[in-house]
């Protein structure tokens, strides 16, 4: 990946909103949470929003770290393993009840399922299929606008 900071943020928000939104829409009702479906949706979308918003901060950090790379690229694996610190941070915030608006109890299995079900397709799409509809995206630092 060859992102600029603007490209990182735009792609992060767009992919989490579209792909993350679709995945969450599909899986929220079956997440292992003992709560009404409406509450499941509410909590699942709040988790998605938290990952997305915090992700903007993470992207700034990644952009800084990338400056030490001569190629100014972001290897494919980096884009995958960053799910670990990002997931942990959101989980810790959930545990600390620091995510506003959560009505139920987001269990660890429910969080893991949703987080991976969103993260992996986003990562896969960014590493290939994204180039099909957006032919300029990869040449413009992954900016969409």
């Amino acid at each position: 990946m060859l992102p600029t900071l603007a490209g990182r943020v735009q792609t992060r928000v767009a992919l989490f909103a579209v792909i993350g939104g679709l995945v969450t829409l599909l899986i929220a009702p079956v997440l292992p949470i003992a709560a009404p479906v409406a509450d499941k949706y509410r909590d699942a979308f709040l988790v998605l929003a938290t990952v997305t918003v915090l992700g903007i901060g993470w992207e700034c950090l990644y952009h800084l770290l990338m400056q030490w790379r001569w190629e100014k690229d972001w290897p494919t694996l980096f884009g995958l393993v960053t799910l670990v610190p990002e997931g942990l941070l959101v989980w810790l915030l959930l545990e600390a009840k620091a995510v506003p608006g959560i009505v139920g109890t987001v269990t660890a299995p429910a969080f893991c399922i949703q987080f991976l079900a969103v993260w992996l397709p986003v990562w896969l799409v960014a590493n290939g299929p994204m180039r099909v509809p957006f032919i300029r995206w990869r040449f413009r630092g992954e900016r969409l606008m």
């Binding site: 060859l2 600029t4 001569w70 190629e71 100014k72 690229d73 990869r138 413009r140």
Partner: peptide, 25 residues
């Protein structure tokens, strides 16, 4: 840039981001 034993090491002709990242910009 990395180097050694006479060579400058780089994956491609230029740092990769000239083809789309911050160096291109």
């Amino acid at each position: 840039r990395k180097g050694g034993n006479g060579f400058a090491y780089q994956g491609f002709n230029y740092p990769k981001s000239v083809w789309g990242g911050q160096l291109k910009s």
